[in-house]
Design a protein around this nucleic acid. Structure first.
Lengths: 339, 339
DNA sequence: CCGTTTTATGAAATCGATTTCATAAAATAC
DNA sequence: GTATTTTATGAAATCGATTTCATAAAACGG
């Protein structure tokens, strides 16, 4: 591997001068600059990033922590992060944690050793403390999608889950649905809690009663498919379901289909996320679209801004909350609005 | 950040001794070892990976290059790579290249500068040369899924695309289908070429004629949906379609559905990949399952074996070809076998 | 033309861990 | 008891790039 010394010798100058030419941080005579550039091009030299990082204390690398890339919202988010990072000259390290505190801790320990400049965390949970420690140590951190409601110390990129859910349920009511069920995720996550609140308030605004038996919960012993199937056999079955994620909507669709009922004539279904399969389903799924790519890109942009600010001033920018807008994408799984 | 000097001072020894205790590469007196470990635990010291890497010439980091993580086969592959890498103490850098030679070159240039130990490449194309250069320079490289048929210099992890395709088409024939169409991908990729060959040979073995008009091609002006729609209106429409990837199968299903025909009664459909959505479709898609997770894990395992061999001996192991087995997963989009 | 400021560049220190080299102390041999 | 080997450890060199420091040469002011 060719190093700076080789180039220096070839150009007949000292390593310092080569460095000065390449970083441009100090004036160099035009003749010497030409000689050096010549030697650089000739050898195909490119500075060793490890040595550079060691000296500078940075690596131009960020980590992206998520539960699992298999969760269908993450590929697009990841793409957004990676594209933006690359544009800014940063490299992305991928961490699937399975929400396992041990794996998460292992990652943090490994990456903390001074060669990751910052973290995008899409897997934070209420109970864990590693991320706070990391932040307290001075690492730039941006929370993505998942966040802790009573903690405003860290940057967050998210959507307005309350309004988005409220809008979706209101839409169902406007299409004439009276018995609107919800397929709910783990409410220890703030974003699911918000979607639940939006559901409740939308019912109230529409003058519809809240019925506890219409709330299906994930990880509740049985899966959504089973819960939906039995709900359809009850005395007052739902005529609509607001699923708090698209995969849950898929299970609902299957349950409806397997009972011989039609979507949307018998049961309307709205999902949340707009992952790629939503449009491919039969019928295509009406869903609340999150701007996943933009969320990833925004998180990367913010993180890199924090990193650069820290490099310049030694401190972090005050934590900010970036709320992107969702959009209800109406497809075939819902009836049309009544005039 | 606490460094080795701090620990040394605290323990009352030299940095060399601290290093010896932690690497275990030289004998240390039991008393001193205890003192050092004490200081290490007390300070929470962990060696700087950048400095370590600079000295050792390795970074315990590998790169995973793919067209895009949005392509639904890659999340699972990525998960396999990452899990195996983590188990072996390696970190994964993610590279989405969009098959753009410029982006790919930029990545290669950036990562070549001595701090990536090896590459898993799932995006190689016949025309490009960067990867060969990289390999010629001595970097360990494992090709995943995509490969170059007349190049046996690099390790490959793949499946038997020919046999898998042949098996799928033979299955369609055995269920009584007579006019089997194929929805084909870009045949400049060897793996699509092989699937095509398997289709042709299966037809022949089943005594069915090859009909050129039943070959639908991606990137052929019109999309698969349109091609399938017009094929269904022809004089002798297909009664089955072998799609060379699951997303293509989805388009076929939509075309069939929109023509008011039923799957599998009127048209059988088989996909390829078994991505997560396959089982969620209505009807659930019969498809050739690739062991995506295992392919990723196998590629990572092989790459790390190469890296370690190179570190020990300075040379690479002779290139090997690892062929994993596919499995036809029969679901609802095909008829059952005739006795 | 002499003193002062710029400009350009090499030598050497630095980042942090590892490793070779040197050496003092301890252990063993005869 | 002296010679030799082994063990334990510190000092210093090393990885490669950057940056401070020092200094020679050039430019400039009066």
């Amino acid at each position: 591997m060719v190093n700076i010394k080789t180039v220096a010798r070839l150009a007949g100058v000292s390593p310092s001068t080569v460095s000065r030419v390449l970083t441009g941080k100090a004036p160099v005579n035009e003749d010497t600059r030409a000689k050096v550039m010549d030697a650089v091009l000739h050898t195909g030299y490119s500075p060793n990033a490890l040595a550079k990082g060691l000296k500078a204390g940075t690596s131009n690398t960020i980590a992206l922590m998520m539960p699992s890339i298999e969760n269908p919202i993450f590929p697009l988010i990841t793409r957004g992060v990676e594209d933006e990072a690359r544009r800014c000259g940063y490299t992305v390290v991928l961490c699937n944690t399975d929400e396992d505190p041990i794996i998460e801790q292992a990652y943090v320990d490994k990456l903390r050793t001074r060669w990751i400049d910052g973290f995008i965390v899409a897997s934070i949970r209420a109970g864990t403390k590693h991320i706070h420690h990391l932040h307290a140590e001075g690492f730039p951190i941006v929370l993505l999608n998942r966040y802790l409601p009573n903690d405003t110390t860290m940057d967050v990129v998210t959507v307005d889950n309350y309004e988005a859910a409220k809008g979706a349920v209101t839409y169902l009511a406007q299409t004439g649905c009276k018995n609107i069920a919800i397929s709910l995720g783990d409410t220890t996550h703030a974003f699911y809690e918000k979607r639940y609140a939006g559901y409740c308030d939308a019912l109230q605004d529409a003058g519809l009663p809240y019925r506890a038996e219409l709330v299906m919960k994930e990880n509740y012993g049985t899966d959504i498919y089973t819960q939906m199937s039995s709900l359809l056999q009850s005395k007052t079955p739902p005529d609509a379901v607001f699923a708090t994620s698209d995969p849950k909507a898929v299970q609902v669709l299957h349950a409806v289909h397997d009972k011989g009922l039609r979507v949307p004539q018998d049961v309307s279904v709205i999902g949340f996320d707009d992952i790629s399969i939503a449009a491919m389903l039969q019928p295509p799924l009406t869903t609340v679209a999150q701007p996943l790519y933009q969320m990833g890109a925004a998180a990367a942009r913010r993180l890199i801004a924090q990193i650069r600010h820290k490099e310049k001033t030694g401190t972090l920018l005050p934590a900010a909350r970036r709320v992107l807008t969702t959009q209800l994408v109406v497809r075939g799984s819902t009836k049309s609005k009544q005039q």
